[in-house]
Design a protein around this nucleic acid. Structure first.
Lengths: 341, 341
DNA sequence: TTGTATGCGTTATCAT
DNA sequence: ATGATAACGCATACAA
């Protein structure tokens, strides 16, 4: 094993003091050009890189940010939606020489305890993401580092928040369907106490009012715990045969929209002729399948970049008031929505 | 901001010295039960967690491992194959209180330089993964931390290696096809200088020999740089119309197998009746689409766990000889392979 | 069994 | 413009 090079070695080699080396490397103080060059030369030749632990011990900042995905960190690797977000996030963070730390932290566990790495100074901030229930977020209310709720929000947790505009997205969806002549539209969602779900449902209700749609023809179909998407599809099917039969549905996300449509097709329902539908997120994975789906496009990469900027700002300035940033979304029309029959 | 609790505060509160607190927390030395309990109580009450930087400065080990995915770290989030591997990896690492560090490090860049966080002691080891070309791996030959090549191998880099058994996998694929009566089988792959590709091609050649298949009827179809999968599909199509027409193809992975089959179906080729095919990896994403695919199943989660164990062992014992671990794979028969017509 | 003292590698303050 | 020195928080060799 090669010996570890320290700032002492550089100082000796460049025939200056520790302080000078440090000043050169951190671009502080006015060191003469000649000395600077001598130091830099030594650094280059010995391939010196300032020791991480020594540095963060002094600076009190680790240049690392923890990323927690609900429910388990590792699940984030399988999610096309977050994948794009994290691409932007990581790129922007690394511009400021920040890295992401991934630890296993099962937020769904009953006996949840904060892991050490979130409170021993090894990370400067925490990004919480995934479909994060309010209850899970509250675990972190005593943390001493700033928190960013990425794609969620909590009234009770002092944290910045960055979400896409679910309210507007659903409003736009309904408006689009109404413009195609639909008046009976269901909203289809999973049954979870999530900020995003609530916001989108609010958008649904507001859109019903705005367009004066009949309440009876616009059911809210929620999936109870223990049921699966097949059950949901059955409920949608029932709604097409009710007294005020629906002619379209809007789903809380592309995944649910796709799988409901999938099961309906298995039941020999003609889509979209018999039933128009709209998703949310614009995940390639689902929205580009056999029936290219009309959906709400979310600027994922930009969200990641914005998230990085919010958390970096917060780290360098903890006094700023908490932010709640909402990113605009836009409807992408494809083939799953047609003029009402 | 609440004050930061240090070992001094605990010592004072428990009325012992710093050393005693440290000894209790690290389970060293024989401290009396009574003292231990006093210390633990103070730790609990003050919610103390030993400062990360102080600790790693002394211990000279950061309990962190860098994960680099080729070509860019962020791309790993979109890969169903690695997603499962990392699930196992992260779980096993965190049992030993190790976290994963993700930095942006574009290995495909011309002017590649090793980022600081790989050589300043902020990580104890490096895991290189993705379809890593030999050339890219060599960038790291001067690193002072141990390296694990996950799903790749290099003769020229001193690193442990963990791969799945591509040779055996392709042998099994061909054997299976032969048992169904196929004698003209193409091997379809991308044109990259990858260890996995080479190994699998070797398996293909060995299987041809072993089964005495006609060389002319068993073309190796490689995708040159600049061409896409559609081009590849066209080449496969040509091979079905050659003098020794193929009746099956084996692809280097599920992705390519799926997309080639997809394009062939668009050309109105009846699959698998007209052409059997086999993938590699058993990614749900692709292998469970419209034609459930016969493929080589790779124990991804176990590979992740094994990777964690190899790297943890290496960290704690750098003298061990380098390991090259090969994980067995198994053929899963589904519907894409049928008896030759 | 417990306490004292030192050093890990860095940055920053204060002299010179 | 540069150097000496004191922290930062912890672990450990050694002393008591």
């Amino acid at each position: 094993m090669k010996p570890v090079i320290t700032i002492h070695d550089i100082a000796k080699k460049a025939k200056v003091s520790l302080a000078t080396v440090s000043l050169v490397l951190n671009r502080k103080g006015r060191i003469s050009e000649k000395t600077q060059e001598r130091v830099r030369k030594a650094v280059r030749e010995m391939n010196y890189s300032p020791n991480y632990s020594g540095r963060i011990l002094r600076r009190k900042c680790s240049q690392q940010i923890a990323l927690l995905y609900y429910p388990r960190a590792s699940a984030i690797f399988n999610n096309p939606f977050y994948s794009k977000i994290i691409e932007g996030l990581l790129e922007r963070l690394s511009q400021n020489k920040y890295n992401i730390v991934l630890g296993n932290c099962d937020l769904s566990e009953e006996s949840f305890t904060i892991p050490d790495y979130l409170q021993n100074g090894s990370v400067d901030a925490l990004i919480l993401t995934g479909d994060l229930p309010e209850k899970a977020a509250l675990h972190f209310s005593d943390l001493r580092i700033p928190i960013l709720l990425l794609d969620s929000f909590s009234k009770h947790l002092a944290a910045d928040s960055l979400t896409s505009d679910g309210f507007q997205g659903v409003m736009d969806s309904i408006d689009h369907l109404v413009s195609l002549g639909h008046r009976h539209i269901a909203y289809v969602t999973h049954e979870l106490d999530l900020y995003n779900v609530q916001t989108r449902i609010n958008g649904f209700k507001a859109a019903i009012q705005k367009n004066s749609l009949p309440l009876l023809g616009c059911p809210l179909i929620r999936m109870p715990v223990g049921k699966n998407v097949e059950w949901l599809a059955q409920e949608v099917l029932k709604a097409t045969r009710s007294k005020a039969p629906i002619t379209a549905f809007v789903a809380v996300n592309d995944t649910i929209a796709f799988w409901v449509s999938h099961f309906l097709q298995k039941e020999a329902i003609q889509l979209p002729r018999f039933l128009s539908f709209i998703g949310f997120d614009d995940d390639e994975e689902y929205s580009q399948r056999d029936i290219p789906m009309t959906t709400i496009s979310v600027p994922k990469r930009e969200i990641g970049i914005r998230a990085a900027e919010i958390i970096l700002t917060r780290i360098s300035n903890s006094d700023l008031p908490l932010q709640k940033v909402v990113i605009p979304v836009s409807l992408v029309r494809r083939n799953s929505t047609v003029v009402v029959k």
